[in-house]
Design a protein around this nucleic acid. Structure first.
Lengths: 154, 154
DNA sequence: TCAATATAAATAGCATACTATTTATTTGTT
DNA sequence: AACAAATAAATAGTATGCTATTTATATTGA
């Protein structure tokens, strides 16, 4: 008997989503070993590239969808690897501005290739239409869950 | 600009799934505070109930979809709370058998109610048909991702 | 103006998952 | 029977996320 087939409430959707995201992370971790990166560390690089140099930490964290303190340690790692630099914001001395180093830019290009190839590969069994429908469902569910989360926090 | 709308490869599906599962976990953590439980600790209780008394740790871990060592610490917590007991397996002295305590059974009943109500609530905007289609998609994607994961491990 | 409040980043500490390893025991092979 | 390989659980160490708090600086409003 495999209880992954058991249903609690209307579906075991959340159970399956948990498994899927953990397994996806493991695939990414394997895929990024070439650069000493992980699932958690490629996102700051890519999002910083997309947001542009001079982005603040809080904005980068928001873009990635993690909390500020979660980003701090990832940045420490990436700075230690020489891929990102922190610099002072002359207009606000509380803030730090982030920049990719030249080495960081090289890695970002490889990240884009790697993630694109991997997603294309893993999503190849599915039609664009099907993916779009699921993405739309996930987005609606996210906003429902997020509403419940915000209510819970109060 | 919100980069959650940026697309890498064919979709940002995985990005959204990551957010969703973290937020879902936070909702559950809030919901289970009444029993001092978390998203991680309710599953062992419920799955042990479904598998039945006398289940081995490795079977429980497989049912939940986590690794053996990940379960050990969760069980330590649950045993400290008096909800589960470990006992010797007379047929195999390496193994331990797990049982719910009477207190554990009470909690399991409340867990079932809570999770069912919460899922029904959060999934209420969606039709059964829609949920079933997404669940089927997730299942297919999981097996694709899992295949890549196993290949990566070698 | 200056005191209260808000904000950005960092720090501290917790929870959860993983892999690799260790320990005890069982199974399988010659 | 005896040794090698496999298995179950536990332990050790790492990574990633969170919340709460601290520190420094900026903003607001009486």
């Amino acid at each position: 008997m495999n209880l992954s087939d058991e249903t609690i409430g209307r579906s075991n959707l959340f159970y399956r989503l948990g498994l899927l995201t953990r397994h996806w992370r493991q695939v990414l971790d394997t895929e990024f070993q070439f650069a000493g990166l992980t699932d958690a560390t490629w996102r700051p690089l890519l999002h910083l590239h997309l947001l542009g140099d001079g982005t603040r930490q809080k904005d980068l964290a928001a873009s990635i969808g993690i909390e500020g303190p979660s980003l701090v340690r990832l940045l420490d790692t990436l700075i230690a690897k020489g891929l990102i630099e922190r610099s002072e914001d002359v207009t606000d001395r509380r803030a730090k501005l982030l920049n990719l180093t030249p080495e960081g830019r090289v890695i970002v290009a490889r990240i884009q290739e790697t993630v694109t190839a991997l997603e294309n590969d893993l999503l190849s069994p599915f039609s664009d239409d099907e993916i779009a429908r699921v993405a739309e469902f996930i987005e609606r569910l996210e906003s429902t869950v997020n509403g419940a989360r915000r209510r819970g926090k109060r």
